[in-house]
Computed example of a mutant assay.
Amino acid sequence: MGFSDWKSASANTYFVFRIPEDAQWSATELPIKSWAVWNDIGQPPYSFQVFSSWQEAIAFLRNIFEKEEYEEKNWDPEGFEPGEDVFVKPPDKDKRDD
Rank of each mutant, 00 (worst) to 15 (best):
E78T: 03
F15L: 05
L30R: 08
T28M: 01
W38E: 10
F65C: 00
F15D: 06
S4Q: 14
N63A: 10
K89I: 09
V16A: 02
N74V: 11
I19F: 08
I32W: 12
A57W: 06
G2N: 10
S10K: 15
A36P: 02
L61A: 09
E66L: 14
M1D: 09
Y46D: 04
K73Y: 07
A23S: 10
E71W: 12
V88P: 00
F60P: 02
V86G: 00
K67R: 15
E78I: 02
P91C: 05
G42A: 03
W25E: 06
G83L: 04
S34C: 08
D97F: 12
E29L: 03
I41C: 03
G83C: 04
Y46P: 00
A23C: 03
D92N: 13
F51V: 04
N63V: 14
E71I: 13
F15T: 01
A27K: 01
F80G: 08
D85P: 04
F80Q: 10
D94C: 11
D94Q: 14
E21W: 07
D5S: 15
F48Q: 06
V86E: 12
W54A: 01
F3V: 07
F3H: 08
F65K: 02
A27C: 10
Y14F: 15
D92K: 06
I64M: 00
I32K: 10
T28E: 04
P90W: 12
N39Q: 09
E66V: 14
S10I: 12
F65I: 09
E84K: 08
N74P: 02
S53M: 05
P90D: 13
D92C: 06
F3D: 07
W54L: 05
P44C: 02
E78N: 08
E68K: 15
A36Q: 04
S52W: 05
N63I: 15
S10T: 15
W6A: 10
A27P: 02
A9S: 13
K73I: 13
E21N: 13
M1F: 03
K89L: 09
E81A: 05
F15R: 11
P44A: 06
F87C: 07
K67N: 15
S47M: 00
